[in-house]
Simulated assay, not measured.
Amino acid sequence: MSPIRLSDLAFTLEAVLDNAFGQKPIWVVAETSDIKNYPDRGYCFLTLVEREDGPSGRHETLAKLDACIWRRNYHTIRDFETATGVAFARNVKLLLLVSVGFSPVYGLRLEILKIDPSYTLGNLERERQEVLDTLVRDYPDLVWLEAGQYITANQLLPRPAVLQRLALIAAPGSDGWRDFRHELAANPYGYTFSVDEYLTQVQGKGAEQAICQQLETIRLSSTPYDAVVLVRGGGSQLDFGSFDTLLMGLTVAGFDIPILAGIGHERNVSITDMMCHQSVKTPTKAAGFLIEHNRQFEESCLRLLDRMGVVARDVLQNAREELDMQTDRLRFVSYNYLRDRHTELTEKAVTIRHLDPANVLRRGYALLLRQGRIVTKAAEVRQSETLQVQLHDGTITVVS
């Protein structure tokens, strides 16, 4: 067989592919890899791959094709990221509308015309739901459904009246760490917080293992923390994936200290948000939650103080009124008692005056005396005895 020129083969392949696929966009499902993005130039080169789990548990590549996005369709990247919150990055499984092209010089290449965001969102939601179903099914003592809501052991932990001693998990020097510390320090009430920092990676590959390791370190420290605060600044949905894993959900749901999550994601609620004791949207709001929680305790104390003041005033007023009443009663009873005693004394004085021997003698009575002693019985008087008779105006001597 006579050999043919390479260009003839290339042109033949171009004609065959153009006849089969030319002007016929098709939808394909593939995973991104080896992305070379040039936003300033308005185009992007990447590799699309299809993988499956092999017998050894490793991903085996079934297909790999080069692809590109030209300037006219470059907006599809921004449209996809806006719709999903997922960064256009490697290892993202996408539903793509592509056209097949072949160049004798550059070879086979797929041109990406459109990215379907609903596929990615649905895929993420399916993965999240699988994790939630696993938690409820395999760990019913830590996670369960109640009236359509996920309830966890961490959510049911008692919350201290004052949240002051904190363990902070954050990335060192990150915006999330900085925003949280600044908001906590600048609180308008002058509250002080004791914060121990457990700094680590909180996004990207390996973040879930790093965070869980820090939680284990906190648990083993035996420090009586009031709460653990997990914060992370803003980022893409892809960076956020560490908070939607089974490991994170299980660790947070069963942790024995209340966990406050402020992981900087406004779009969706992560599995970590659903499993933790309290979830807020951002690190700043996490600090605000702590300040407001302590403010509510202070206000309750102030209300109790006001109530105690009112009760004390009422008690004192009632006691004063009772004292006044008892004083009036004592004064009235004392007056009547003294008056009655005065009357009795007066009556007794009159009686005593009436019984005074001088007064008795003045009324015509006489006293019979023997040597100055009163004789009261006739049998005591002897015959021819000399006695004295005491009268009102003098004494006379008589012989019996």
Rank of each mutant, 00 (worst) to 15 (best):
residue 62 L to V: 04
residue 102 F to V: 09
residue 325 M to N: 11
residue 191 Y to P: 01
residue 32 T to H: 08
residue 220 L to Q: 14
residue 227 A to R: 06
residue 268 N to S: 04
residue 278 Q to T: 11
residue 89 A to V: 09
residue 7 S to M: 09
residue 174 S to G: 06
residue 257 I to Q: 03
residue 128 R to I: 04
residue 152 T to L: 00
residue 357 P to D: 07
residue 125 E to P: 01
residue 343 T to E: 13
residue 99 S to P: 00
residue 377 K to N: 11
residue 400 S to F: 02
residue 27 W to N: 14
residue 181 R to E: 12
residue 309 G to N: 12
residue 122 G to M: 08
residue 306 D to W: 02
residue 130 E to R: 05
residue 110 L to G: 02
residue 297 F to T: 13
residue 153 A to F: 08
residue 183 E to L: 10
residue 36 K to E: 13
residue 90 R to F: 01
residue 123 N to T: 05
residue 293 H to V: 04
residue 245 T to N: 02
residue 351 T to L: 14
residue 64 K to E: 13
residue 70 W to Q: 09
residue 185 A to D: 12
residue 15 A to P: 02
residue 107 G to C: 03
residue 374 I to H: 05
residue 315 V to A: 11
residue 33 S to E: 09
residue 380 E to C: 02
residue 140 P to E: 07
residue 390 Q to I: 02
residue 257 I to M: 02
residue 309 G to T: 09
residue 140 P to R: 07
residue 220 L to M: 10
residue 179 D to S: 15
residue 53 D to M: 06
residue 265 H to R: 00
residue 187 N to Q: 13
residue 197 E to V: 13
residue 116 D to I: 04
residue 105 V to K: 11
residue 192 T to R: 15
residue 328 D to Y: 11
residue 65 L to G: 03
residue 329 R to G: 04
residue 21 F to I: 05
residue 68 C to R: 15
residue 52 E to P: 00
residue 336 N to A: 13
residue 28 V to T: 06
residue 11 F to G: 05
residue 113 L to V: 11
residue 145 L to G: 00
residue 111 E to G: 05
residue 368 L to Y: 03
residue 165 R to D: 08
residue 182 H to I: 11
residue 203 Q to E: 14
residue 163 L to D: 03
residue 18 D to T: 13
residue 91 N to H: 11
residue 387 L to R: 05
residue 319 A to G: 06
residue 68 C to Y: 11
residue 371 Q to S: 08
residue 384 S to V: 02
residue 131 V to H: 01
residue 228 V to Y: 10
residue 168 L to N: 14
residue 342 H to L: 14
residue 163 L to Y: 03
residue 391 L to C: 02
residue 149 Q to V: 07
residue 128 R to W: 06
residue 282 T to A: 06
residue 138 D to W: 05
residue 392 H to V: 02
residue 312 A to F: 05
residue 268 N to T: 10
residue 299 E to Q: 11
residue 60 E to D: 05
residue 364 G to T: 05
residue 145 L to W: 00
residue 32 T to W: 09
residue 56 S to N: 13
residue 49 V to W: 07
residue 38 Y to C: 00
residue 338 L to Y: 14
residue 127 E to S: 08
residue 168 L to W: 13
residue 156 L to A: 09
residue 158 P to K: 03
residue 109 R to Y: 03
residue 134 T to G: 00
residue 186 A to C: 15
residue 207 A to H: 07
residue 219 R to I: 00
residue 316 L to T: 06
residue 53 D to I: 10
residue 272 T to G: 02
residue 175 D to R: 14
residue 373 R to N: 05
residue 182 H to M: 07
residue 255 F to E: 08
residue 274 M to Q: 14
residue 140 P to F: 10
residue 269 V to T: 13
residue 331 R to H: 14
residue 65 L to H: 14
residue 179 D to H: 15
residue 394 G to C: 03
residue 358 A to D: 07
residue 92 V to I: 15
residue 148 G to E: 10
residue 366 A to D: 04
residue 310 V to D: 12
residue 198 Y to Q: 12
residue 257 I to G: 03
residue 382 R to V: 05
residue 228 V to G: 09
residue 31 E to W: 05
residue 379 A to G: 15
residue 78 R to I: 07
residue 246 L to D: 06
residue 252 V to R: 00
residue 137 R to G: 01
residue 326 Q to L: 12
residue 264 G to T: 03
residue 165 R to M: 06
residue 277 H to E: 04
residue 177 W to Y: 15
residue 268 N to E: 08
residue 159 R to D: 01
